[in-house]
Each structure stands twice: as structure tokens, then as C-alpha cells.
Design a protein around this nucleic acid. Structure first.
Length: 481
RNA sequence: GGCGACGUAGCCAAGUGGCAAGGCAGGGGUCUGCAAAACCCUCAUCACCGGUUCAAAUCCGGUCGUCGCCUCCA
């Protein structure tokens, strides 16, 4: 079964067909870097990370572009977001955005989110955004008014095709701030005139100003991916107006489609309510990482379909953590046993069990990246693997290698939820060797019924975060924290 | 007010016409020096009402409820 994705543009699942065979060009709206990243970002970018990882698993060559918004954009109060951060942190604007850009990457790295191939900064693409506005003016889709440039929604009948909104409906909405210089309430800024004290401003054909808040994505996506490109990802809450405006201005400027598939992720709530700084229930990724393993945070995100909302709660993440532990500890145990396994082929029946589960995992992921169902397959597989391994006798090297391959491909490469000790590394190897040396000593003590020594080793290891587990075929261990 | 999504066991969550995946928690066992882990067994007619159908959690209509967006955050 081929990969099918739910395309928000058209609101239905479609078979995914890239423009160029074997290649996928993907754009995802990135963060505004004026404050710390929070778990809402984690939900969105882990979701998109899975899309990228899975496409690569399928063999596609993916070019992933994600912007860094460092030019501000206005808050409700009329204040520029970057300016707000500058005031709070008492630094230069570029110092602020550099700082939070680094924090963003640091946090995403910690969560195992693979970096985009290109992370273009909006501030570095002002000429491209000016050119976009100019093209739209030249073609009659935009107009200049009092030093600002607005997109003329009435010139583009397709406006609203992504969100399903009608311009007329919005006009009646009393909450749309109507600027006197705009011809239509729904017209949006491509370029804004800057007041003299506005910190971030550039020269333009219309005087000093700064880009409108949708321009950067259009300009940078087409610059690095061409147009049309394959997939545009982002958060559902940005469908309107942001994504809608991107489409309108990009398609009006070029006459060709912007992106073929729109994949939008559901948002995150905390204990049932929206997370927002004003409500004071915002959790930064740094704080979350102090309490939970990054792999557990990822697993929580994956346990809900990316298009659905995720409710983050203490009970939810704890339950996820325990379930995750089963998969991770089994994967680790396989790694350990592989070190001392005896040569031997895999049993044919068990080989086909693994093969079926891999196929089933792929089938779920092919259905619009159904990670919760795929995770279910992994749990099923783990169940069967543990059953098989609890049979008398030591598993052969062939068996262990096949299981290790399954975990490493699906739980490791695609979902990114395995811990370090399951994936190797020089330091991990040494640590494992030391632990196993101690377990050797303990095994000798147990044989001599020297329970005091045996328990001293077990308790000592536990204090270091290593849990010892006795099994019929010898003692195993796993990292608990 | 407008647009949209959702409502499946104590909790989380797949499933879009044909006997309701999976995880957590709970109950009962096995193994074990003790412990932990693992294994075995067990635990739901799908918000409500009406309709279509041989057959509906799945389709249609209505009711109630929750959430999101329309305005800064992803």
C-alpha cells in the first residue's frame, strides 16, 4: 500500500506523489525566536520530524526547509514581538534572536528532532520579500497605501480555499481590526511602514518599513524549494490567516500552485485548556526535560495522531512513560544479549513474525503517518518478542540480530524513541562492560548464596540508576534514569 | 456571532459499514533467595435521540458537551 496523506487542501486523504520521483521538498513554518520554546513547539516539530524521518525511511531524498522568524510581527498591543523580548532581556535585537535561535536548536536537538536542511532567517531575506510585494503590485494584486503595501483580497477569488473561509463572512466579523488605509478588511500587509522608533526596519521602494507577517514563508519557501513544492507543514491554528495568506500571495505572484500537500498538526492543551503565556500554564521544553526523558516526551506526542489535539497532563505522560519502558528495555536487553550470543540461525516462524510486524508498522505509517497505531504494532511485537525470549534456552545470534534490526529501524530511526544504550556508542559500550563485570561478580555471589554481597551490588547499581533484573538465563540490566 | 475539529473501558488512544488494536491502571496466576522485570489469564457494544442498511462506533438528521481558530503564541 502506498503512502497516503491527509491533504488539508481538499480535506481528504490522497496518495502521496512527489513532483520529482524519489525527492520530497518540504517546508514547515518555524518559530519566532523571542522567547523559550515550549512543549507546544515540541508537539508540532516532533510531529513533523516523524514525517521527515518516515519519508527518509521510505527511501525519499528529503529537503526540509524551516524558517526562523526573527523580524518580529506585532502583538495585540501593537508591540513588536522581538522588541518585547529585547526589552525583557535588555539586549540588541540581533543578539536576542541569535540567543533564542540557539536555544531553539538546543531544545530540538535534545528532543531528537532532526534539524532542517535549511533554516533561513527572515531578516536575511528582506530583499526577496520586497520583490514579492513589488511583483504583486505590478500584477495588480497589491496596492501601496501610506508607505505600507497590502494584498488586495478582492483580486484573488481563490482566497479562502485552504481554510474554507469566505471573505464576506469575515467582513461581518467585528473583531477584524480595520485599518483606514486598507481597501477591504481582509486585505493583509505585505509590507508595513515603520514608525521612526521601530527598532527593526529596512529601506524599501515605499520608504522605511518591515515585512508583513506572511511574506517570509512565501519568499523563502520558493527560494529554496521552488514552486510548486511538495509538502507544506505547520500547526492547524495557523491555517488562517497565515497559511491562507501564504497561498494567496505566492500563487498570485507566480501563477502556479504554492504547495501540493498541506499537512497541519493539531495543537496542544494542558489539562484540557489551551497553553498560553497569558494563562501562565506554559511549560518550557527545558522544564519538561528536567522531569521526563526526551524519548518519553516524543512517545507522548506520537501516541496521538498528529492531526488530533494532544492534552498534556501528569497522568498522561506517566502512563506513556511506563508503556515506553517496555519497548525500550526490551530493545536494550536484546543489545546486551547480542554481546555474548552464540552463533545460530533465526527460527523461521519467528522470522516471519518479525516480518509481519514490520509490514504492519509500515502499513499504519503509510496511512497518513498513523503513529499511535504504529506504536501499537511495536507494543504487539514487543509482546511477542518477550514471549519468544522467555522460552527456555538462549536465543541465537540470528534471532537477536533480527530483533535488534527491527527496533533500530522502526523505534530508533523512524520514531526516534530509543535511548542511547540501545543504539550503542563508545562510552555506552564501556559503561555496559563495567556493569556486566559487576553482574559477573554478583552472579558468583549468588551461586555461593552470599546474599549480602549480591544485594550490595544490586542496591549500589540501583542508586546509580541501573536496575538489575534476574532472568532464567542470567542477570540483565537497564538504565532507569 | 462565523468557521472547523472532536466526544470509544477508571485514564490515554487506534479503528470511517461486517464479530471493538494497543498502552497505563485494576484483578487472578507463573517464575524468583528476596526484589524487579517478563510471561499467562482477565477487564467496553463506542455522548444521547431518531433514520438508512441484511449489517453502523463507522453513513444521514437532530440534541447535548468539550476544544481550537477568527486576535499574539505552533
Amino acid at each position: 500500500m502506498p503512502l497516503r496523506v491527509y491533504n488539508v487542501l481538499g480535506r481528504k486523504k490522497e496518495e502521496f506523489k512527489p513532483i520529482r520521483e524519489g525527492h520530497v521538498r518540504l517546508y514547515v513554518c518555524g518559530p519566532t525566536v523571542y522567547d523559550h520554546t515550549h512543549i507546544g513547539h515540541a508537539k508540532l516539530y516532533v510531529s513533523m520530524d516523524i514525517v521527515v524521518r518516515y519519508l527518509r525511511y521510505l527511501g525519499y531524498s528529503v529537503r526540509y526547509v524551516q524558517n526562523i522568524t526573527d523580524v518580529g510581527h506585532l502583538l495585540d498591543s501593537g508591540e513588536d514581538r522581538i522588541v518585547k523580548g529585547v526589552r525583557r532581556e535588555r539586549v540588541e535585537p540581533m543578539e536576542l534572536v541569535e540567543r533564542f535561535t540557539r536555544y531553539y536548536f538546543r531544545d530540538m536537538d535534545a528532543l531528537g528532532v532532526i534539524r532542517p536542511d535549511i533554516s533561513p532567517r527572515a531578516s536575511g531575506h528582506v530583499p526577496e520579500q520586497i520583490a514579492l510585494a513589488q511583483t504583486l503590485i505590478d500584477d495588480g494584486h497589491a496596492y501601496e497605501a501610506n508607505g505600507s503595501v497590502y494584498f488586495d483580497v478582492s483580486s484573488w477569488p481563490a482566497y479562502g480555499k485552504l481554510s474554507g473561509r469566505q471573505v464576506d463572512e469575515m467582513e461581518s466579523g467585528a473583531r477584524v481590526a480595520v485599518l483606514g488605509e486598507k481597501r477591504h478588511a481582509a486585505d493583509f500587509a505585505l509590507w508595513r511602514k515603520a514608525e521612526p522608533d521601530h527598532i527593526l526596519q529596512w529601506d524599501s521602494p515605499w520608504g522605511r518599513g518591515y515585512p508583513g507577517w506572511h511574506a517570509e514563508c512565501s519568499a523563502m519557501a520558493s527560494k529554496y524549494l521552488g514552486q510548486p513544492f511538495d509538502i507544506h507543514g505547520g500547526g492547524l491554528e495557523n491555517m488562517f490567516p497565515h497559511n491562507e495568506c501564504e497561498i494567496a500571495q505566492s500563487e498570485a505572484a507566480t501563477g502556479v500552485p504554492f504547495a501540493n500537500y498541506w499537512l497541519l498538526a493539531g495543537s496542544l492543551t494542558i489539562d484540557g485548556v489551551k497553553m498560553s503565556k497569558s494563562l501562565g500554564n506554559s511549560i518550557t521544553i527545558q522544564d519538561a526535560l528536567k522531569r521526563w526523558k526526551p524519548q518519553v516526551i516524543r512517545t507522548l506526542v506520537l501516541s496521538t495522531h498528529y492531526r488530533n489535539p494532544l492534552d498534556f497532563s501528569e497522568t498522561a505522560i506517566q502512563a506513556t512513560g511506563r508503556g515506553w519502558e517496555r519497548i525500550n528495555s526490551t530493545a536494550n536487553r536484546i543489545r546486551q544479549q547480542l554481546r555474548t550470543a552464540e552463533e545460530g540461525e533465526i527460527d523461521a516462524g519467528f522470522a516471519s513474525f518479525l516480518k509481519e510486524h514490520r509490514a504492519s508498522f509500515i502499513e499504519k505509517m503509510n496511512d497518513d503517518f498513523n503513529s499511535p497505531a504504529a506504536l501499537g504494532v511495536l507494543h504487539d511485537a514487543t509482546h511477542g518478542i518477550n514471549s519468544h525470549l522467555s522460552l527456555p534456552g538462549s536465543p541465537s545470534r540470528g534471532t537477536l540480530e533480527a530483533v535488534d534490526q527491527l527496533y533500530s529501524d522502526l523505534a530508533g530511526d523512524v520514531l526516534g524513541i530509543l535511548t542511547e544504550e540501545a543504539t550503542g556508542g563508545a562510552s555506552a559500550e564501556r559503561e555496559a562492560g563495567l556493569i556486566e563485570l559487576l553482574l559477573d561478580l554478583r552472579s558468583k555471589a549468588r551461586k555461593d548464596k552470599d546474599w549480602v554481597s549480591a544485594d550490595r551490588i544490586r542496591d549500589g547499581l540501583r542508586k546509580l540508576g541501573v536496575a538489575v533484573e534476574d532472568r532464567p538465563d542470567g542477570a540483565g540490566w537497564r538504565i532507569e534514569r
